[in-house]
Design a protein around this nucleic acid. Structure first.
Length: 620
DNA sequence: TTAGGGTTAG
């Protein structure tokens, strides 16, 4: 209980809850907007029924207000629970203040009224309001929560990762004997799974007398969500063996598992499963598939899936926009966004995150600035911290470091690690050590455990030849027991993922790979390519530097790919960190000399190398 | 009750 109260005190949004609104709002100004069809009803019951249908399906705030006005004029809020329906629609449309004000005005609220409002705020992942309502319902009204109350509250806890609060609700559920209800257990499986307590999730699952399709789906989903794709697929197999038929939620989780594993063969198999089951018309599945193909490097397939969609929604449009952004197609991303607007689909905050990111990746500074300026004014989308991160990246990487810094200083919200991270990244690209050092200090205090901050600063010093400063940062890392993950490159071939680290000799074909690599290095030299040894961030002789750089993991993966696949076949390689500048130049030339398209994905984006050029236009 | 789009740094 103390835990719940402390959470409520932390949530400032609860202030809204305690505001008592006594006067009825003046909705009369909206009366004129009412559809004349409502005047035709002589019987009140039929009018209420028509109004309820209209309210539950209305998609605009102004129309909802107009309907509300009609309700005030003609009927009682309790008639057919029309008041509850209005409250639910206000929440769905994002008018949370209107919803809470109207809710307080409703004369006879029962358990269903409270539950439907809690459920609405749960869908908005607003745990603070959910808990506030739960308390008011329990202690002001004396109503005892039932399963329908508990499930959305648990779901909201899972949504925001509030495990401790979720555990309290779990306790309430146990005391009230709600654990016999399958849906309650399912919501708890989801809570524990999402919060990383897979053991607790499994324990609940095993303890169920009957597991429903949703219970199985939850087990697949939570494992995939935690990065354990193989285990998630394992649950899918067990589910099929238990004779449970999958549905769209299962398939979406399977697609996410494919993304997690990065295996194209598996993705194609799941795509076949989707086509066989006639599930390709499902929008959520098609969106997940589109996104998966983009993340596997096959943008043309993403475009194909998007082209076949009927009435794509904002999520589908955004997934396609993000795919263009990820592949460095800034201009196409902008065209796609403009088309989305012309088609009448409203963009949201995620759409703008990708749009700004697309501008940033392609160096479209003026376009990005313009979208940032109008996103709230024209489209009503609130500026979030991630939008600032994108803008800092856009300004900083294009060389306007001071503008980027000034933007951070002018932020009306607290800049987080993401924003400062974008700035330090730009400092590294632009070689501004002074500012980089200052930003690194901020990052060290904001999150001392993130090894990336130390590595970036150390690499900046190394690139400038300040070896002593670089080693000081490394020593600090060691002192704080922070580990650096080695850079590695992956390439899929023959139902296997082949992984290489720098200087790797573990592959059975090592000798052939190194011979091929030597040949490639020689060919590159013959056409005048000199190794960019400044990318070797170790204080060693020039000769050793050249030897080290020629054994980078992406070069080994390229050599293996050329040996293992037929002439002309594209090579798709994934890296766990950013591609190095020398390897970028190397891949460009190899794509020309060997006549091979090479696609390299680093942590987030793709570089498409064809005929000696890269899709990023060397802007990255 | 489960499921689709999330930027920025190694």
């Amino acid at each position: 209980m103390i835990m719940l109260i402390s959470y409520m005190q932390r949530s400032s949004k609860l202030l809204i809850l305690h505001k008592f609104i006594s006067s009825i709002r003046l909705y009369n100004s909206f009366a004129s907007q009412l559809s004349p069809t409502f005047h035709a009803f002589s019987n009140v019951d039929s009018l209420v029924s028509a109004l309820i249908t209209a309210i539950s399906t209305c998609s605009s705030i102004s129309y909802c207000r107009a309907l509300h006005c009609r309700v005030i004029k003609s009927v009682n809020y309790n008639h057919g629970f029309i008041g509850d329906q209005l409250v639910s629609s206000y929440v769905e449309l994002g008018c949370t203040k209107d919803a809470l004000e109207l809710f307080d005005e409703l004369p006879d609220k029962d358990l269903v009224s409270w539950n439907s409002l809690i459920s609405g705020f749960s869908r908005r992942a607003d745990l603070g309001i959910c808990l506030g309502l739960l308390f008011r319902m329990r202690f002001e009204m004396g109503l005892k929560p039932n399963e329908v109350t508990v499930i959305p509250v648990v779901s909201a806890c899972a949504g925001v990762g509030e495990l401790d609060v979720g555990k309290c609700i779990h306790g309430i559920a146990v005391k009230s004997g709600m654990l016999l209800e399958v849906k309650v257990v399912n919501s708890l499986i989801n809570l524990y799974g999402k919060c990383g307590c897979l053991e607790a999730a499994c324990c609940l699952f095993e303890g169920m007398s009957v597991q429903s399709l949703v219970s199985w789906n939850s087990m697949v989903a939570v494992h995939v969500h935690m990065g354990l794709a193989e285990k998630g697929i394992g649950y899918f197999i067990m589910m099929r063996r238990a004779g449970i038929n999958s549905d769209q939620a299962t398939v979406v989780s399977l697609l996410l598992a494919c993304e997690n594993l990065g295996v194209r063969k598996l993705a194609e198999a799941v795509h076949g499963y989707i086509l066989n089951g006639g599930l390709d018309g499902n929008l959520a599945i098609a969106t997940a598939l589109l996104d998966l193909y983009a993340k596997l490097g096959i943008l043309s397939d993403s475009c194909k899936v998007f082209g076949e969609m009927i009435n794509p929604d904002a999520v589908a449009w955004t997934a396609m926009l993000s795919s263009y952004a990820m592949h460095g197609r800034g201009r196409e991303a902008i065209e796609h966004f403009e088309l989305m607007i012309r088609e009448g689909v409203l963009p949201d905050h995620v759409t703008f995150t990708h749009l700004l990111c697309a501008c940033s990746h392609s160096g479209l500074v003026e376009e990005g600035k313009n979208y940032f300026k109008i996103m709230h004014k024209v489209y009503g989308v609130e500026l979030r911290v991630e939008h600032y991160s994108c803008m800092v990246d856009l300004l900083g990487r294009s060389g306007h470091l001071n503008d980027a810094y000034n933007l951070i200083k002018s932020m009306p919200i607290e800049p987080n690690c993401g924003v400062w991270g974008a700035l330090i990244g730009a400092c590294r690209v632009r070689g501004n050590i002074e500012l980089g050092k200052e930003v690194a200090e901020r990052l060290f205090s904001l999150d001392p455990s993130d090894s990336r901050n130390y590595i970036t600063l150390s690499n900046m010093y190394s690139a400038a030849g300040q070896w002593r400063d670089a080693s000081k940062v490394r020593a600090l890392m060691k002192e704080r027991v922070l580990i650096r993950n080695p850079g590695c490159s992956y390439i899929e071939h023959g139902n296997k993922i082949h992984c290489y680290v720098m200087g790797d000799q573990s592959h059975p074909d090592t000798e052939r790979i190194y011979n091929k690599l030597e040949e490639l290095v020689r060919k590159n030299r013959e056409v005048g390519f000199a190794s960019k040894t400044e990318y070797v961030l170790h204080d060693v002789d020039e000769e050793v530097k050249e030897d080290l750089i020629n054994k980078h993991s992406e070069k080994l993966a390229i050599a293996f790919g050329l040996l293992a696949t037929n002439a002309g076949m594209p090579l798709i390689i994934t890296k766990n960190i950013r591609i190095c500048g020398d390897c970028h130049g190397f891949a460009k030339l190899i794509s020309l000399i060997e006549k091979r398209p090479i696609i390299i994905r680093d942590t987030k984006r793709f570089h498409h190398f064809t005929n000696g050029l890269c899709s990023c236009g060397d802007y990255w």
